[in-house]
Design a protein around this nucleic acid. Structure first.
Length: 479
RNA sequence: GGCGCUAUCGUCUAGGGGUUAGGACGUGAGAUUCUCAAUCUUAAAACACGGGUUCGAUUCCCGUUAGCGCUACCA
């Protein structure tokens, strides 16, 4: 057995919300680590909070991972289906004296917490029921009195977490309270279920958000109580919004799938996310495909500080990826955008669509551009940008000349980039105007936009018929 | 409040006892004149603060401040 094939990591979201950006980054890091090590990634759904967990959210998480291209090797496992295992673990800890029954009611607990707070003391479970004689606890429990199971935290000493990212992090045991393992309804809390599952699923590396760092001593104590080997913990700094507070709905899109809806290409999003909180060793470039990301990934290069989600950098990655994508790969994504925008391309000729996409993609920043600014390349059902008219077509004389020039094109036997340019330049000479004026005007008349690729390439892409028709129509384009 | 983590350009970061503190995104300027959201050139922009240690600290230590996290019979 080599160390590499023994690596087992997990992504363990709770289905109380869609797959958000932070969760996606955690999933990505786990995936990169597993693939780098040739290990396994396990998907585990932490749905022990029945109140808030829904199956739609499970689907949403799966959908988000698939969109990002993150595949897993085992699961999804559902904690809700593993309840007996948690109870068995809890029972073991009760038997070994590391856990005890607590009969305090929620109300009592809350009242005491409020009082502690009011008196300026640290609100912490005082261990009232810990002092209960075993026999009495057992008697009350069998008599049917509701009770939770608490872990008996050592009253002295420190628990030190050897974290692969942050190094040794120490917590005094006195700071920890006797946390609940099993709720009075028999449902495990997070603290019990993660530990149980991570042991049972033979997880070797726990890679998760730094928000769990403070919970980790509670988990370490259980490993010790259970005599189980400790996994390697690696806590990953959090992702913040532009105002440096934790990324949340307030900041707009936090669901991964909303980025697909915004026209982001999945690889661009993945690349962007990978570089949020991690930098590959001596790598000058930032555009990194999955293979490169996997090859370079290591826990050591994860940063210790939180990172701000920078939308403009995401947009840059998106631009780079759209440009680099072969048009064959872009086409299905663009078709999705066309559907959303209700655009039906007039041509069914796929090679024509592909060549038009190739022409356009160096100027695209977003998949939506193909259904928005570039609409006129695919359908006659488009609007001319008034600002573009204002810029290049407000002169009646120019518009009239374009209409006149349309007839030159109609009469032309050849229709190539060279010939179309020749026609225009000859016509400009004939009219004693600058070719540029005609070119800029034509651009607006032909595409509805002030920005486009080289005009003659555009003409060829549109074809003779459309070029003529749209130039003839130039007179009607009033600002 | 307590505990924990963190602190390099606006943002992501590299670096590390002696550096012109490097790169990328974004921003400004210029070039191109067939447009620009393309391309090229270029500029501005950072070691949070205060004490130590040291010949020398942005780097190591302590403190302060700030931000974030945890502090539930949520996960």
């Amino acid at each position: 057995m080599t160390t590499s094939d023994s690596v087992r990591v997990r992504f363990a979201p709770s289905p109380t919300g869609y797959l958000h950006v932070g969760g996606a980054r955690t999933a990505l890091f786990n995936w990169l680590f597993a693939r780098h090590a040739g290990g396994k990634l396990i998907l585990r759904i932490e749905d022990t909070d029945f109140e808030r967990s829904t199956s739609e959210m499970v689907e949403g998480i799966v959908e988000g991972m698939k969109w990002l291209g993150l595949d897993w090797d085992e699961g999804p496992f559902f904690q809700s289906q593993r309840l007996p295992m948690y109870r068995a673990r809890a029972e073991k800890m009760l038997e070994s004296g590391r856990a005890y029954h607590c009969f305090c009611t929620k109300e009592e607990l809350e009242a005491r917490r409020a009082r502690a707070q009011a008196e300026g003391r640290t609100p912490k479970y005082e261990g009232l029921c810990r002092k209960l004689p075993k026999e009495e606890a057992e008697r009350r429990r069998t008599a049917g009195e509701a009770c939770a199971l608490r872990f008996a935290v050592p009253e002295t000493g420190v628990t030190v977490i050897p974290d692969a990212v942050f190094g040794n992090v120490e917590f005094a045991n006195t700071e920890l309270e006797d946390f609940v393992l099993l709720r009075s309804d028999g449902i495990p809390t997070y603290h019990l279920s993660v530990v149980t599952d991570d042991i049972d699923m033979r997880i070797t590396h726990v890679i998760r958000g730094a928000d769990h760092l403070s919970n980790t001593p509670k988990q370490m104590l259980q490993y010790q109580a259970l005599g189980a080997p400790l996994p390697i913990f690696a806590h990953v700094p959090l992702i913040l919004g532009p105002d440096k507070t934790r990324l949340s709905k307030r900041h707009g899109a936090t669901s991964v799938m909303s980025y697909r809806e915004e026209g982001i290409v999945p690889e661009a999003f993945r690349n962007f996310l990978a570089l949020l909180g991690w930098t590959p060793e001596n790598s000058a470039k930032e555009i990194l495909g999955d293979k490169e990301l996997i090859a370079a990934f290591s826990l050591e290069n994860i940063s210790h500080s939180n990172a701000v989600f920078d939308r403009s950098k995401l947009d840059w990655f998106n631009t780079e990826y759209i440009r680099a994508y072969p048009s064959e790969r872009l086409l299905p994504l663009i078709r999705h955008e066309w559907e959303l925008a209700g655009l039906k391309p007039e041509s069914n000729d796929e090679s024509k669509l592909l060549s038009t996409i190739d022409l356009l993609k160096p100027r695209a920043r977003n998949l939506k551009d193909f259904a928005g600014a570039f609409r006129g390349y695919f359908t006659d059902d488009y609007q001319t940008d008034p600002a573009a008219i204002e810029k290049f077509l407000k002169d009646d004389a120019v518009r009239a000349m374009l209409a006149e020039m349309a007839e030159k094109y109609a009469a032309a036997s050849e229709f190539s980039e060279q010939s179309t340019e020749q026609v225009l330049r000859d016509f400009a000479t004939e009219k004693s105007v600058k070719a540029g004026a005609l070119i800029n005007g034509s651009r607006v008349a032909l595409t509805g936009q002030a920005v486009a690729p080289s005009l003659f390439a555009v003409m060829v892409a549109l074809g003779k018929e459309k070029t003529v028709a749209r130039l003839r129509n130039a007179m009607k384009l009033n600002a």
